[in-house]
Structures are given as structure tokens and as C-alpha cells.
Computed example of a mutant assay.
Amino acid sequence: MARVDPLAVAWAPEHTAAIQGLRNWAIRFAELNQHLAAWMNLPGSDANALSHVVWAAEDGKPLSPAELSRQIGMTSGATTVLLNRLEAAGHIRRSREHTDRRRVTLRPEPEAREQVRRFLAVAGVEVAEVLLDTGLDDLRRITAFVTRLGEAGAVANERLRRRGTT
């Protein structure tokens, strides 16, 4: 695909509606994380990090501290302090599961995972209803679209990191 100037494109209403819908979901998702923080009596940053650790583990792709740091937008030092708090509170554990013993994997503790599941049982009702009410073909198309959009964002973020603009 040729490079485009996003500010010079004549966007169709469907394009802007899709981006606005994704933006609204990101805002609502952040609000849900704030409710998770209150549910678990955690600071918002800790709940956000814990949710990343839990979702990654649920997906079978546990995070390293460096990956978590990138995802939550914190320095490695700040992430270490946050992980120390979560570990001391019994919410996560650091393990060395790789042949390279220097590499650390983050895992949620069973009780923390269960607390998040109980939260989702209350907070996720409407989201689950929408997912179950959406046809599988539509979900496949949506998944393909958001996956491509996520990959495009990853490429843009890597390009910006290489330029040193962040």
C-alpha cells in the first residue's frame, strides 16, 4: 500500500465512524479498568498492569516486564516498582521459565485471576451480550480489521521509536 498523508485524505463517513467507534471503546475500556481498580482496591496503574498480565496469560502469551512496560507506557524502573507492589500484594509472580534464566515471565496468581474473573462476571455482561449477538462471520471480519489496524499501529510505533520522537 502506498504511503498516504492522513491529513490530506478525503475520509468517508464510514472511515471516521470506525475510528471514532474504536476510540470510544478505548475510552470505555479504560473506564472499566478504573472500576477494576476500585473492585480490587488497587491504584489505577496497578489494576491496568494486572489486567494486561491476566489477559496475556489467558491468551497463552505471558508478558515479560519489558513487554508490560511498553504496553502500559511506563519506564522499566517505574514498572519494576509497580510489579514489586503487585507481587507483594500477592497478585502476580515473576518466574524464570525460559532456557535463558535471565528472562522473566509475569503470571497472575490464582486468587488475582479469580478476582478479575468475578469482576468480569459483573462488568462484562453487556460486552458479552454484544459479542454473542454478533454473527461469527461479522466477528471474523471485525477481528481481521482490528488486527490489521493493530499491526499498522505497531509499525507506526516502531518507526517513531526508531526516529526517537517518543
Rank of each mutant, 00 (worst) to 15 (best):
L149E: 10
T105M: 14
G60V: 07
E129D: 14
F145R: 12
A88D: 15
P43W: 06
W25G: 01
P43I: 02
F145W: 13
A12W: 05
G77P: 00
R159C: 00
V116N: 02
A47K: 05
E158I: 03
E151R: 12
A2H: 10
N33P: 00
V127T: 08
T79E: 03
T143M: 02
D46T: 02
F29M: 07
A56F: 08
N157H: 04
G90T: 09
H52N: 07
D59A: 15
A123C: 02
S76V: 10
E109S: 08
A18K: 05
I72D: 05
A78Q: 07
R161V: 07
Q115D: 04
V116A: 08
G44S: 13
R113H: 08
V54Y: 10
L32F: 03
A78P: 04
I92W: 01
T147E: 07
G77C: 00
E111F: 04
V122F: 09
R140W: 05
D100W: 00
A88K: 13
E114S: 13
A88V: 00
R94M: 12
A78G: 09
N48W: 05
L36C: 06
G150K: 03
P6E: 06
R28M: 08
P110T: 08
M40P: 02
A154H: 15
L83G: 02
I72H: 03
A8C: 03
P65T: 05
D133P: 01
T134L: 04
A156L: 15
A128G: 01
A49I: 05
N33W: 00
R162P: 02
S69C: 11
A88E: 10
T166R: 12
A56R: 03
R162H: 11
Q34V: 07
A49S: 07
D100R: 10
V104T: 15
R162M: 11
V122E: 12
W25Q: 05
R161M: 07
D46Q: 09
A144S: 12
A154I: 09
N157R: 15
G77N: 12
I92D: 01
A89N: 06
R96P: 02
I72W: 04
H15A: 11
T75W: 02
A56I: 09
L132R: 15
G135L: 08
R163P: 00
L120N: 13
R85H: 14
A38C: 03
D137L: 12
V130K: 04
S76T: 09
H91V: 02
